[in-house]
Simulated scan of single mutants.
Amino acid sequence: MKNIVILISGRGSNMEAIVDTCASEQWPARIAAVVSNKASAGGLQFAASRGIVTAVLDHKAFETREAFDAELARVIDGYAPDLVVLAGFMRILTEGFVRHYEGRLINIHPSLLPAFPGLHTHQRAIEAGCKLAGATVHFVTPELDHGPIVAQAAVPVLSDDTEGSLSARVLKQEHVIYPRAVKWFVEDALTLRDGLVQHNTGEPQLVLGD
């Protein structure tokens, strides 16, 4: 039974998808805790309603990013995590924190990495004339929005798309690939070699959505 700790800063819709899928598919894992840097994060209420332990650590109470990350790691380690999942955790993590969880820290980013790291990914995809947009689940490395790719989902960029409409369609696919990627990790179904991630039985790591 593997322990999963999920970090959020807001409503945590990807966290909800992971929690629900873990329960419905009866993974050999449990959500040990949901941790947020904001007491107002809507996802905390959802987690508590499912009987999941929650914790809040306000980054504003710390003078430096390093001090916050050190305390955050101490809190997380109290739940003995096998996997730490970033689900809309809006903090740039220090190299020390990332190294501490190397190989067991994953994130989802709303673009087809390596394209469009950073913010405003959907608007940038539209402005660039991209015909596809999407999301990427990846292992976290010290370089922001990089790291070995676990899974991706792609949707077409429609001629009348706005940032909001494209974002909504991509988010729907995020709720498919993120639980799937977490399940693969839990089942020891992933192999990381030379910076590339492969599913051990060849299950598709790309989802094509509408």
Rank of each mutant, 00 (worst) to 15 (best):
153 A>N: 03
76 I>V: 15
124 R>A: 14
102 E>G: 10
172 K>G: 02
172 K>T: 04
174 E>K: 02
172 K>C: 01
96 G>S: 14
97 F>G: 01
84 V>L: 05
210 D>P: 03
136 T>S: 06
13 S>N: 03
80 A>V: 12
177 I>T: 02
87 A>P: 04
106 I>D: 00
60 K>E: 08
91 R>Y: 07
58 D>K: 12
9 S>E: 09
194 D>F: 09
75 V>E: 11
148 P>G: 08
123 Q>W: 14
152 Q>T: 05
73 A>R: 00
122 H>W: 08
117 P>Q: 13
127 E>C: 07
33 A>W: 01
169 R>S: 10
160 D>N: 14
204 P>C: 12
48 A>E: 13
59 H>V: 03
20 D>Q: 09
123 Q>G: 10
37 N>T: 09
161 D>F: 05
179 P>T: 01
139 F>R: 06
1 M>R: 10
70 A>K: 07
74 R>T: 14
17 A>D: 01
140 V>T: 09
167 S>R: 12
158 L>V: 09
115 A>S: 14
176 V>R: 04
174 E>Y: 02
69 D>A: 06
142 P>F: 12
110 P>N: 11
10 G>Y: 00
205 Q>K: 13
149 I>P: 01
202 G>P: 12
60 K>F: 00
9 S>Q: 08
4 I>G: 02
61 A>M: 13
31 I>G: 04
39 A>F: 11
66 E>L: 07
159 S>P: 00
202 G>V: 06
91 R>K: 14
87 A>S: 14
61 A>Q: 15
126 I>N: 09
73 A>P: 05
100 H>N: 08
84 V>Q: 03
198 Q>G: 12
74 R>K: 15
10 G>E: 05
98 V>W: 06
194 D>N: 13
133 A>S: 15
85 V>P: 03
166 L>F: 08
148 P>T: 11
28 P>W: 10
19 V>E: 01
30 R>H: 13
164 G>A: 15
154 A>S: 13
155 V>F: 03
44 L>A: 05
164 G>W: 02
196 L>K: 10
55 A>C: 09
56 V>E: 06
176 V>D: 01
171 L>G: 01
162 T>I: 11
135 A>E: 07
120 H>W: 15
59 H>C: 07
200 N>F: 03
1 M>W: 11
85 V>R: 02
135 A>D: 07
112 L>W: 05
175 H>K: 03
158 L>H: 15
56 V>I: 12
91 R>E: 14
113 L>A: 13
115 A>F: 10
165 S>Q: 02
173 Q>V: 01
7 L>I: 09
150 V>R: 02
14 N>R: 05
16 E>N: 03
25 E>D: 15
164 G>F: 08
60 K>D: 11
72 L>F: 05
26 Q>V: 15
66 E>C: 06
179 P>H: 02
91 R>D: 12
74 R>P: 00
193 R>S: 11
108 I>Q: 00
174 E>N: 02
185 F>W: 09
96 G>Y: 04
155 V>Q: 00
183 K>V: 09
183 K>T: 10
15 M>N: 04
59 H>P: 05
18 I>T: 04
54 T>P: 00
109 H>I: 00
14 N>G: 08
146 H>I: 02
79 Y>V: 10
153 A>K: 01
100 H>G: 05
94 T>P: 06
108 I>T: 06
96 G>R: 13
27 W>Y: 06
153 A>L: 08
43 G>D: 05
156 P>M: 10
114 P>L: 13
191 T>H: 07
205 Q>I: 10
34 V>H: 03
168 A>L: 10
126 I>F: 11
69 D>E: 07
